[in-house]
Amino acid sequence: MPTIVHEFTWPDRVVVGTIGHPGSRTFYLQVRTGPQIVSVALEKEQSALLAEKIDEILDELMSAEGNPFSVPAQTPVELVDNDPLEPVDEQFRTGAMSLGWDPSTLQIVIEAFPFSESDVEEAIESDDETLVIDPPEMLVIRAPVGTARAFAKRTREIVGAGRPLCPLCGAPIDAGGHICAALTDLSDD
Rank of each mutant, 00 (worst) to 15 (best):
A51K: 01
M62T: 03
K53A: 05
L106I: 11
A96M: 13
I54V: 14
V88P: 00
E65P: 09
P114K: 02
V71H: 01
D128C: 09
P87I: 10
D55G: 09
E65R: 11
N82C: 07
L79D: 03
D81L: 05
D59I: 08
Q91L: 14
L58N: 03
S63F: 10
F113G: 01
V88G: 02
P68H: 03
M97S: 01
P76G: 12
I124N: 12
Q74W: 08
P72E: 02
W101D: 03
V71E: 04
E86G: 06
L79V: 10
T105H: 05
D127R: 11
L79Y: 06
D55P: 05
E122Q: 10
S126R: 03
A123T: 11
L99Q: 02
D59A: 15
A73N: 08
P68Q: 07
Q107M: 06
F113R: 02
G66C: 11
L106R: 15
P76C: 11
Q107D: 06
S70T: 09
V71M: 05
T105R: 15
E111S: 07
M97D: 02
E111Q: 13
S104E: 10
A96S: 14
A96T: 12
V77D: 11
S98L: 11
D81H: 10
M62G: 08
R93Q: 13
R93G: 07
G100Y: 09
E78Y: 04
R93F: 05
E125S: 15
W101V: 02
L58E: 00
E121K: 14
S104N: 13
S116M: 01
E117L: 11
E129N: 12
A112T: 08
N82E: 15
F113Y: 12
G66Q: 10
V77W: 08
E52G: 14
G95D: 08
F92I: 03
V109R: 03
E129V: 13
V120T: 11
P72L: 05
E65L: 09
Q74A: 14
T94D: 03
I54N: 01
M62E: 07
P76E: 00
P72T: 08
L85Q: 04
E90M: 13
M97K: 04
F92Y: 03
P114R: 09
A123V: 00
P72H: 00
V80E: 13
I54W: 00
E78K: 01
K53N: 07
D59P: 09
L79Q: 05
D128N: 15
E60Y: 12
M97P: 03
S63A: 13
V71A: 01
D89P: 06
V120P: 01
E125Y: 12
D102L: 06
V88M: 05
S126G: 04
E60G: 14
L85R: 04
E117H: 08
A51Y: 00
D128A: 11
S126W: 02
Q107E: 10
E60V: 06
E121T: 06
F92E: 00
S126K: 05
D128F: 04
A64I: 11
A112Q: 06
V77G: 08
V120E: 08
T75C: 15
A112H: 06
S70V: 05
I54T: 03
I124W: 12
E121F: 10
A64N: 13
D83E: 14
D127I: 00
W101T: 01
D55Y: 04
Q74R: 14
E90S: 13
I110H: 06
E111P: 04
T75M: 12
E125K: 15
R93L: 09
A123N: 12
S98Y: 05
